[in-house]
């Protein structure tokens, strides 16, 4: 039981680390958002599962926590991306923006 828990927690920590590494390595805002949200979601999830194996009596609370992370994390990343797009932050390499028209103006 403890062994499985440790494996899950290890995976979670690894993904959180990779996510924070991605924030350092990626070049622009949108890529950074992608790495951070995706990696931290998985990281948090597997950590929660690991803790659930360690302490089965906390199962219900942990499900609630996981549920709220599942709901809030995409909304947060969506609002961040939307805000940065509205304020005019551009992509680093590929200048093509599907949300703009051909002349590069906002729709």
């Amino acid at each position: 039981m403890i062994f499985i828990a440790i494996i899950f927690i290890f995976i979670g920590v690894l993904f959180s680390f990779l996510g924070s590494l991605g924030i350092l390595r990626m070049k622009d805002t949108y890529n950074r958002l992608q790495t951070s949200t995706k990696a931290t979601t998985l990281g948090a999830f597997s950590t929660i599962i690991g803790v659930g194996f360690l302490n089965p009596s906390w199962f219900f609370k942990l499900i609630l926590i996981a549920f709220f992370i599942l709901i809030t994390s995409p909304i947060a990343s969506h609002s961040l991306a939307r805000a940065s797009h509205k304020t005019g932050i551009k992509l680093e390499e590929n200048q093509f923006d599907a949300l703009n028209n051909e002349n590069g103006e906002k729709k």
């Binding site: 709220f68 709901i71 809030t72 995409p74 909304i75 969506h78 609002s79 939307r82 509205k86």
Partner: peptide, 18 residues
Amino acid sequence: FEEPSFLQITGVKFVTPF
């Protein structure tokens, strides 16, 4: 401020009471 998007409105309506 800008108008909120659909996703934001739904999310906020769900989360705020909790």
